[in-house]
Write a protein that binds this DNA or RNA. Structure first.
Lengths: 192, 192
DNA sequence: CAAATTTCTAACTGCTCGTTACGGTAAGCA
DNA sequence: TGCTTACCGTAACGAGCAGTTAGAAATTTG
């Protein structure tokens, strides 16, 4: 059946993700990818198709990872409201820890590629909807646990939070750390 | 003294702004600019220096325009809280009206060019700080008018709102209009 | 072992990039 | 009228771009 792959396609995809995440789509050239993936030009095309397809696959991989973390955190037993708060704080912490200030690939993809890129659009919509759904579920549970006002609207609140988190990832690209902390702090007060 | 300029440098700058806003920095080529500005290649370089300088000048112009609108709205007499609410609703309306879904040039610049571009970084920081200051002022007035809880923290609230607005402009790039409206709606409830 | 199959490598295709230079011409001022 | 300046179209620049192709090398299967 022929020769087997010498490189790990998933490791290479992760390297591509790293590069696209740091530099964006347009600013990343195939030569950049060749240099950083450690495999040959031809192998990249044979394995992933094109630069654009590779980007979408990297975006898929990113969404998968982030989505799992989100769903796991927001579905954990115990106080649902605490889970939501920890979810927010987690995003803030992620922003702080990222010394390269790459932000969030979903956010970056949305601002760079929408509305022109349908493939990216579908993935971004799915990613945002998944987070929104997970948040909505947690907020419904929080409401049931009387942690939330009975007038609270879980779905709308979730949409607010999704939007706010996108804002966090924009601010994360700037240097201003206090703005980020203050913003999260104030958002948390809304959740009562 | 020689021939005087035949084209309107400011009109050309606005055309460049339009293009960068719609397509982003990397995705806009000099050829695109030559085609849309209606002036010659050489005249572009003679007038604006380089593609990057032209971008920064376009960003300056954008910030100037947006900043004036913001400051005027947030400084108007009467209920300061209403002004803040109208400011938020104004951003939402701007998102809805923009059929090209260009979003906000500050937001787009931050996600595409930061942290690598110092010139863009300075301008983005200034723009965000100006809005934050204008919002803080309005919130202080709102607090004085007893429209805001006495425990409210105007500066932190302003930072929260700035961050949230960035999120709005990310969501504006997607198609989902309800998410935007719900998000604004929920954010407004925080301001009470 | 030998044939089949697949990956690997590297040179190569046009093409586009941002930028600069070149005449030729039109307009302001002496 | 001259001098200067700015305009235009065009072309060129070197570099880098995304993507292709041909063949050598390697491994699996019959």
């Amino acid at each position: 059946m022929g020769r087997s792959k010498e490189f790990d396609p998933d490791a290479a995809l992760r390297a591509a993700l790293e590069l696209f995440w740091r530099q964006g789509y347009e600013a990343t050239s195939m030569q950049d990818l060749v240099d950083h993936l450690g495999i040959n030009r031809g192998s990249i095309y044979a394995t992933y198709g094109s630069k654009h397809e590779l980007y979408l696959k990297a975006l898929d991989r990113y969404c998968e990872g982030q989505g799992n973390v989100a769903l796991e955190l927001l579905s954990r037993p115990g106080s649902a409201l605490s889970a939501v708060r920890d979810f927010l704080l987690g995003h803030a912490a992620q922003c702080h820890q990222d010394e390269e200030r790459k932000g969030c690939l979903v956010t970056n993809s949305a601002t760079e590629l929408l509305p022109g890129d349908a493939g990216a659009g579908r993935r971004i919509d799915t990613a945002l909807r998944d987070v929104e759904n997970a948040l909505t579920g947690a907020l419904i549970r929080a409401k049931g646990q009387r942690e939330l006002d009975e007038n609270a609207q879980p779905r709308s609140l979730a949409r607010f939070l999704v939007t706010f988190i996108q804002g966090l990832h924009v601010i994360a690209k700037t240097q201003d750390e206090r703005r980020l902390d203050d913003a999260v702090d104030q958002a948390l007060t809304l959740l009562r």
